[in-house]
Simulated scan of single mutants.
Amino acid sequence: MRHSTKATSQDYPVEVAPYDTDSRYRRVHLKGVGWVPLEREEFEPRVHQEFPWLNLDDPRQVHWDDRPWEWPPWHPGEA
């Protein structure tokens, strides 16, 4: 699975790597934790576990490499 590890010009608490159609996950970098693969349903709870104060809609706090709030399609039973 490819993911971005490049540093951005701003130090974001949360960075979301590029959309990857070969996986149901998006790679998410949580400052102080590292990169973790998260499903759509896991994203908000996991981010708020680390950063309860964080506003997910604030582009100064959450950086999306592309396709904000999108996850590749996945259906139960798929590998």
Rank of each mutant, 00 (worst) to 15 (best):
A17H: 08
D22H: 11
T21K: 12
L54Y: 05
L30W: 05
P52R: 13
P72K: 02
P37F: 01
W64L: 11
E41K: 13
D66L: 11
D57T: 15
P45V: 03
H63N: 10
Q49N: 07
V62M: 05
V62S: 03
G77K: 08
V47N: 00
G77E: 04
V28D: 03
L38V: 01
P13D: 14
H3D: 02
R2C: 08
T21Q: 12
Y25H: 15
P18W: 01
R2M: 09
R67D: 03
M1I: 00
E70F: 07
A17L: 08
P59F: 01
W69L: 13
R40W: 06
T21H: 09
V36G: 07
P76C: 02
D66T: 06
Q10F: 09
D65E: 14
Y19C: 12
H48D: 01
P76A: 09
Q61R: 04
R46K: 15
S9A: 13
W35Y: 10
P72Y: 11
G32L: 05
H3Y: 15
R24V: 02
P18K: 05
H63V: 04
H63T: 07
W64F: 12
A17G: 15
V28Y: 10
N55H: 08
Y19S: 04
Y12P: 02
Y12C: 06
Q49L: 12
H3Q: 09
P13K: 07
Y19Q: 03
Q10P: 01
R27E: 14
D11L: 04
P13V: 13
T5D: 08
R24A: 10
P68R: 07
H63R: 12
G77W: 07
P45A: 12
E39V: 01
L38N: 05
V28M: 07
F51C: 04
W53L: 03
G34H: 08
L38I: 00
P52G: 08
E70T: 14
D20Q: 12
E50H: 14
W74D: 01
E42V: 00
D11R: 07
Y19P: 07
E15T: 14
T5R: 14
T5M: 12
P68E: 02
W35L: 12
R46H: 05
Y25D: 09
T5V: 15
D66E: 11
A7P: 05
V28L: 08
T8G: 06
Y25G: 02
P73Q: 06
D57L: 06
V16M: 09
Q49G: 04
H29I: 10
Y19T: 11
R46I: 00
A17S: 15
V36E: 11
H63Y: 15
H63I: 02
L56A: 06
L30V: 08
V14C: 03
V16Q: 13
W53E: 12
Y25S: 07
Y12E: 01
Y19W: 12
H48P: 02
L38K: 13
S23P: 05
P76Y: 12
S9Y: 02
H63G: 00
W74L: 02
G77I: 00
R46F: 11
V33R: 10
S4C: 14
S4I: 01
A17N: 10
E42P: 08
V47S: 00
W69R: 15
W35S: 09
H63E: 05
N55P: 00
